[in-house]
């Protein structure tokens, strides 16, 4: 039983075409490693852009700032100040999750970088500032503006969603670029494997013609090339991933303050799931490209 298994293994590894020399174990793995390294960076760029978009949209885009000039004056509707009227109108509006007027201390703290000690002067005619949060998907800013202006004319509503939307568009463009880079890297890796396979075919032309004459099928020959190319491309994929990991962790540490709390200085889950797929993708590219290249080349033989 053991001898039979050994025999089968020997049969499977039998290098009758001499591909260990024809498809050397240096250049192809190194080139694929470089491609995998770039793919890892592109994947990280895409994941980071997606994380930033998500973070901004969940945070700043969901916030509204409402300024109410002369907040203590009576509102057009009797019995309330302008601030109270605006707060009441805000809380009654659909899509508003929370609305809170900033305290005098919070306002002074916001103005201190510009006004210094004068920021706390009660004689300053400051508007009241209300921080509000909207529910997800809310977009009816025009109606809200009209409603608040009716409650207290001159009220200003500033949505953070506009500039967050622009930033999100920028981030999505970066994400698209990252996917384009990934596609280009995959294309270059395919070309590298195809060129290496063609070089192997040229180097082993005589051997291929001999085994072809002895009755080898296209599959018999293509599988041998594909097995070798898969091994070398997979090896390159692992090397490239190992080289990319420390760089990605360093970049994640740099990006963390912009993307979330300090504890988020590790690789995002989507990236942790995607990175191990890179060597597998490299190996798959090696297998498919070698198969297609060899089978196409073999068509010249009868």
């Amino acid at each position: 039983m053991r001898e039979r298994r050994h025999a089968r293994l020997r049969h499977a590894r039998f290098d009758d075409l001499g591909l260990r020399r024809a498809l050397g174990d240096r250049m192809l793995p190194l080139l694929v490693a470089a491609m995998t390294f770039l793919a890892g960076l592109a994947l990280a760029g895409s994941a980071a852009a997606a994380a930033l978009v998500r973070h901004w949209q969940e945070g700043a885009a969901a916030a509204l700032t409402v300024q109410v000039p002369t907040p203590a004056d009576p509102a057009p509707a009797a019995g309330a100040t302008r601030l109270d009227a605006v707060l009441a109108a805000l809380r009654a509006s659909p899509g508003i999750a929370e609305a809170r007027a900033l305290s005098a201390e919070e306002l002074a703290s916001l103005l201190r970088p510009w006004l210094g000690g004068a920021a706390g002067d009660p004689a300053l005619p400051l508007p009241a500032v209300i921080a509000a949060h909207v529910t997800q998907g809310w977009a009816d800013l025009t109606a809200l503006r009209a409603r608040l202006a009716a409650a207290a004319p001159g009220t200003l509503v500033e949505s953070h969603g506009v500039w967050v939307g622009r930033l999100a568009l920028l981030a999505r463009s970066l994400q698209a670029c990252a996917w384009l880079v990934l596609a280009l890297v995959a294309g270059v890796a395919t070309a590298v494997v195809a060129v290496a396979t063609r070089a192997g075919l040229a180097a082993r032309r005589d051997a291929i013609e001999i085994v072809h004459g002895l009755g080898a099928t296209d599959r018999y020959i293509a599988v041998r090339f594909a097995r070798r190319a898969t091994l070398l491309a997979g090896l390159g994929g692992v090397l490239g991933l190992l080289a990319a990991l420390p760089v990605l962790v360093a970049l994640a540490t740099l990006v963390a303050p912009f993307a979330g709390p300090p504890s988020a200085a590790t690789l995002p889950p989507v990236l942790l799931a995607g990175l191990p797929a890179l060597p597998l993708a490299a190996a798959a590219i090696g297998f498919v490209t070698a198969q297609v290249t060899v089978r196409r080349w073999l068509r010249r033989l009868p």
Partner: peptide, 17 residues
């Protein structure tokens, strides 16, 4: 095949089959 031994050269058609 220059990289194969005499044994493996003779065995080649049998392995292919």
């Amino acid at each position: 095949l220059p990289h194969l031994t005499a044994f493996d050269n003779v065995a080649l058609p049998l392995r292919i089959a």
